[in-house]
Nucleic acid binder design. Structure first.
Lengths: 225, 225
DNA sequence: TCCGTCAATATCGTCGGACGATTTCATCCG
DNA sequence: CGGATGAAATCGTCCGACGATATTGACGGA
């Protein structure tokens, strides 16, 4: 009777493996937003049964990263400009809350953010896109860990943000990634310092940058609507 | 099975019907938080196959209202004090965002909130618990409609809040429900008036009341941890 | 040639059964 | 009384089947 869905149990199942595979495929570019997902093809590629695949797709559908239309199959969601705007508005509030809670946490807990900072510094050196993804993930994992709010990781639409990142990728330069990473660093520094106002301000600044970047993108990067 | 004459969207399927049935059962008290869900029993009760039921359970697991432990089955989540605190913190931020967006919307859109207000007034008269549930649902539906942010209804953990309400029910008096409904009314009025600050303040006040009520509840109302 | 109609196909939704894996529980023995 | 043990219950995964529906492409008439 644990109040929260099983953390370890759930990760050991076939459906979770499949869901992770697709999520990871989105991050690595193996799956592209808008791509049609045919059940028969995926069952062959992933070597699983249709039942398990459908459960995984239903799971991903709940996360909002695949859309399912009756008798027309599933496809990776492709965000419109409006979807992106709405997503960023919600995400900003939740990350702000996370930053506020984290900055108000105990000193030893806040020190965990140093790991994310170190990873960010390493990213500046090699500059691989894969490490950028890793940075992002490490940053948010660490932020949620320090914030110590079990509900935040559940509701924060980070998987949808991955979709957003995937759509931006062809248009985003390495410099922009570096700027974004610098934003993570500023948040982490404010959190480690225990400065609540600075942490919230850093989150706001990061999302302001992101919104500006989105505005500058061509229409081709978005779904119509 | 064959009784699906006019399916127009993805929301009209067996799995969705099952998920709705369980969600509704939680609201009406048919399912109690902590209750064990046996697949064989549910397939008989709902007259569906195990495949469809499992998809539905996976869906509800994604919404965070049922927990699934490998080889031990699914059960309705039961929130601990901490879970409740975390849930309310996140919910407050999202409802605040919704109220802010709604109050800043156009005048004709904001007028939609009058429907929710009328429903709230009707609730004061008959005072049935079922109508209280209806009020709550109508209020949030309307708020999200006016806020015009597609991401908000997706991420806002209202189903988990239903869990919370279900756990409170045995300890919540009718007067407290009325007080809560009055909080909805204040938010709606501020939204209709287009007063952003007042709307956000009303949300804050509502959650402050809720937190105070939670603190006063006995331990028996919560899962341990 | 263009466009509407209609059949063929691909794919999905649901079902039922099967088998191994694991937990749970009652039983038995020390 | 407590720990080992075996049976029952339940779950996870797979497979095959059938009807339902959307998509596609052929066909014929204007």
């Amino acid at each position: 009777m644990t109040a929260t869905p099983a953390p370890r149990d759930a990760t050991t199942g076939t459906t979770e493996k499949v869901a992770d595979a697709i999520r990871n495929g989105i991050r690595t570019g193996q799956f592209v937003p808008g791509q049609h997902l045919v059940e028969a093809e995926l069952t062959l590629r992933l070597q699983i049964s249709r039942s398990s695949l459908r459960e995984a797709l239903r799971h991903l559908n709940g996360d909002g990263i695949v859309a399912i239309h009756r008798y027309r199959g599933a496809h990776i969601c492709r965000l419109s400009r409006r979807d992106t705007r709405d997503l960023l508005a919600v995400l900003e509030q939740l990350v702000r809350l996370a930053a506020r809670l984290a900055a108000a946490s105990t000193h030893e807990k806040r020190a965990l953010m140093d790991a994310a900072l170190d990873a960010a510094r390493r990213h500046d050196e090699d500059g691989d896109h894969r490490s950028y993804i890793a940075i992002r993930q490490a940053f948010y994992d660490c932020l949620f860990e320090v914030a110590a709010n079990r509900e935040l990781p559940r509701v924060t639409p980070l998987r949808r943000a991955d979709l957003f990142r995937a759509q931006m990728r062809p248009y985003q330069s390495w410099e922009q990634q570096q700027i974004h990473t610098a934003g993570y660093r500023r948040i982490a520094q404010a959190v480690v310092a225990g400065n609540v106002e600075a942490a919230e301000a850093a989150v706001q600044a990061l999302f302001a940058e992101t919104r500006a970047m989105v505005t500058a993108l061509p229409d081709a990067a978005f779904e119509e609507g």
